[in-house]
Every structure is written in C-alpha cells, then in structure tokens.
Design a protein around this nucleic acid. Structure first.
Lengths: 260, 260
DNA sequence: ATCTATTTGTACGTATGTATT
DNA sequence: AAATACATACGTACAAATAGA
C-alpha cells in the first residue's frame, strides 16, 4: 500500500493536499487496488493495519471506508475473518448513483425516449438468434402478464412496470455491458412515473395493445434469428411507446432510485 | 427531519434495519431532502443538531455525511456559516462513479462504438442550427489543434484526446441531459486508451485525416442548420473512427476515472 | 448450544484546524 | 488581531456480530 502525504507536509495548498484525510486515504486504497490488480472478493487490510500504515486515527480510516462503500467498491463484514473486501459495483448501485445525478437535471420522458429509440433497436438486433429457448419462453411469459386489459389504476401501474420488465430482461442479455446498463437504467427511470390519463381509456388502450403485439412479433424475430426484423419491430415499438407516454401525459417522479 | 429506527428497536432483522446506522442516517437525510424539495446550496442541519436529532454519536453522523459526500450529494465546509450543503452531483463525479462500475466489466472499444454510432448522429442532428457563432468558431478552433500530422507518440496521444474534446464540446451543448452525459462519458473513457500501432503510420494517418474532414463538414452542416447532413456526416465520422481504433489495436486502460 | 476469539461498529471527550466577522 | 462558529482529527473504551471450538 502506497504512503499518503503526511499531515506535516509543508506544501499543503495544492489540489491534492486540499482533500480531507479520509478522501486521501480512499484515493490511496483505490489506486492500490488497481496497482495490485485486485479482484472482487479480495481482502483489504484490516482497520488496525490501516491505522498503523497511514498513521491516522480509527475514525478517519472508517470515514475513508464509508467513502469507498458508498461508491459500491467495498463491502465490510464484522466478526472473525471479517474486514473490508473489494466488491464489484452492482447494477443497482451504479443505477442509483447515476440517478442521483439526474435528480437535479430535469430529465424528461421525451429525453429518455430519444435514447430508447436509438438504442433498443440496436440491442434487439444484436440479440437475434442468440437467446436460448428458456429465455424466449420467459419473455413470452412476461408478455402474458399484461394480456388482459387493466381494470384499475393499480393494475394499470403494475402492467406498465411489467412491460418494462420485458426490456429489462433483454438488457440483461446484452453482451455489450454499456448498452445493457443504459437500457436497464432507462427502464428503471421509466418505472417511476405518474400518469394523468389512465391506460384503460379506449384510445390509450389501443396504443398499448399495439405495443404488446410488437413485443410478440419481436420475440418471434429473435427466435428466428432475424436481426433486421428485430431491429425494425423494436423501432416501431419504441415509437409507439413514446406516443403512449405523450398521450398519457406521463411525468417523471422526483425521487432517488433505490439501491436495491 | 424524519426519525430513524432507534438502536433499541427489537425487530432488527428486515432489510432496512440490517443496514448500518450511518447508512440509515444517510438514507433518512436523502429522503428528507426530497420531502423538503431542497435545492443545491441549501444547508443541512449542523453536526451537533444531527447528533441531537438522531441521538447518535459524532462519528456515526460523520460517517453518514461521508456516504453522502461520496455520492456527490453534499459538500461540507468548515468555519462560521459552514456545515453541510446540498450539492448537485457534478458531471465529473457522476462519470467517475459510473466508471467504477465498468472497471469490473470488460468494456471494449467496440462496445463503446456501438453506442457512439447510434447516439452521436442523433446529437449532431439535434444540434443543427442551434449553436451560436461563438460555439461554432470554438469547434473550428478545436479542429485546428490537430491540423498537422503528429510527429511523436506524445503528440499522437495529445491529438487523440483533442479530437475527443470536439465531441465533449458537442455533448456539453446537448439539450437532452441523458444524451449529453452518455456521450461525454464515452469520450472520457476513450481518452484513456493505449494504442499499439501509431497514428503517424501512413495508413492510419489517412483514416485519421478523413475523420478530421468529417468534423469540418459537420461544423458546416451545424452552421447551416441542416440536421440530416449533420446526422449522416457524424455517422460516417463514427464509422471511420471505429475503424481507426481497430487498425490501431487500441485497448482500454484499466484504471478508475478521476473525479475532476 | 455455549463459549471464546477476532474484527468491525458505536460512543464520547478533547484538541486542532479553518474560515468568517 | 481576536473572538467565534463550525468541521476535522485523535484516542480510548466498550458494544455487537460472526466463525469456530
């Protein structure tokens, strides 16, 4: 583990030394993890050893560990064999942290759909012919969850989330982790909306049913390995979904995404 | 500020109470910020008041504040009038946190280009006719930074980063914050690469010069407000840039993104 | 099932650092 | 320059959790 600038360093004015000690310790540990090429599950030095190595107080070291924990990079366990361990940042954590960023922007549903229309067809095409029968069956089972018209606002909402699950599933199968992450993130953001015109109004329901048929056609194209059909079907599905959101006057909820 | 489950709570087994006290305090403060609809700059209660309100020790409160600080949601200042303040998560912070997530995936340059090819043309089209003359001139000045062939590996690298600045600038003008963020993030990820075949080899340089010409044509389309020309020029530019990365056998660096 | 050892988690008092007035 | 109001850091004591005997 590398040394950290000591507190008695006389040149304490540059942008590195201006950071708090916990911050500096956390940075040092991060670059140590890189230098040692550590993998998830590997154990970091214990509290006492860190206190000794950095020459800092227990509280300072603990604050540093909380900084790393909030980033999702370490998990800490008590007891014998306990300690802090390198941890791969989870999907949910990364999404929650990114959601914090957008909490202060005013991201609209139209913004999200601009990316969905560009990316979901790309994902669909790249998945054609690459899903096993079990996964395809799971997608069809998912569609069945919203096969009957919703009768209440609660059912309406549940079906809306269920139809996003379809896209979350696809995202989970993406071989491109960036593509999968962005699409999964958008699906979760869209799960948190409020609508002022309900789905079960005839005009809305018609749009919605067309979307469900698109999903059916999409699974067919995926099964047959027809990438271009999958791409075009998904593109049509996304345009329809965007229109439905507009008709429903859907609005994003203003809250932080949950971490799990 | 809402109360937090007290330490003497007998039902300490569910997924909420299993969180550590600092985590619970941090969550409570986050939902309080939402409930009060606080904005960046607003002051949170001071250490002493939090200690009193939560009935916890100073160290616990401080660890909670470090959790929020790592997420980029609060900044803390010392001195009179100091304390912790709500803070909009910065671009750099959000990118660094998302970069942590991809550190453990193996994201390839091809993965990034799959998204760039889908998204950059969309951004270009949406910017056509919407940039002022000053911004357009800045883009042209940026292109001038790599107008002459690089002579050394250092110049090669500097020009590579400079050409990504062009895209960072465009991303900065995006009206869609999600689109701008994702493109800016990818630009920064691509700034951290190593290449095994240098740009100044004739074949590579030819590809690279074609890219520079695409950027020039793109600025022209943006100035003229021709969205479709901008879209197609950017699409060609992205395909060319991807080919150049492949020819150069570029590889992602394995490190954490800096926070600023 | 209990005890014991190990390791983190919480508490609290004191001293120091830092920025504002 | 001095007083003030705040966070920052330290050190110690004890509590809680967990694995293993």
């Amino acid at each position: 583990m590398p040394p950290v600038t000591t507190p008695s360093d006389p040149r304490a004015a540059d942008s590195v030394s201006r950071r708090s000690r916990p911050e500096r310790v956390a940075e040092a540990i991060k670059s140590w993890v890189v230098a040692e090429n550590m993998a998830p599950g590997d154990k970091l030095p214990g509290e006492q050893e860190l206190i000794a190595r950095f020459g800092m107080a227990k509280g300072t070291i603990r604050e540093a560990m909380r900084l790393l924990e909030a980033q999702g990079l370490v998990k800490t366990r008590t007891g014998p064999g306990g300690g802090s361990f390198v941890h791969a940042v989870s999907d949910a954590r990364a999404q929650a942290l990114l959601g914090n960023y957008f909490y202060f922007k005013n991201l609209t549903i139209a913004d999200i759909y601009q990316l969905r229309i560009a990316l979901e067809p790309e994902l669909a095409a790249s998945l054609a012919g690459r899903l096993g029968e079990a996964d395809l069956a799971a997608l069809e089972a998912n569609i069945a969850r919203y096969d009957t018209p919703p009768a209440t606002a609660d059912e309406d909402r549940a079906q809306h989330i269920a139809s996003l699950d379809f896209h979350r599933r696809l995202a989970g199968h993406a071989e491109n982790p960036l593509l999968g992450f962005v699409i999964g993130f958008m699906s979760n953001m869209l799960s948190d909306i409020t609508v002022s015109r309900r789905l079960y109004e005839p005009r809305n329901y018609d749009l919605w049913r067309r979307g469900r048929d698109h999903q059916r056609a999409l699974v067919r194209a995926l099964r047959e390995g027809d990438a271009e059909a999958a791409r075009h079907t998904m593109a049509a599905h996304m345009r329809g979904a965007r229109d439905l959101m507009e008709v429903q006057e859907a609005r994003m909820a203003r809250r932080f995404l949950p971490d799990r």
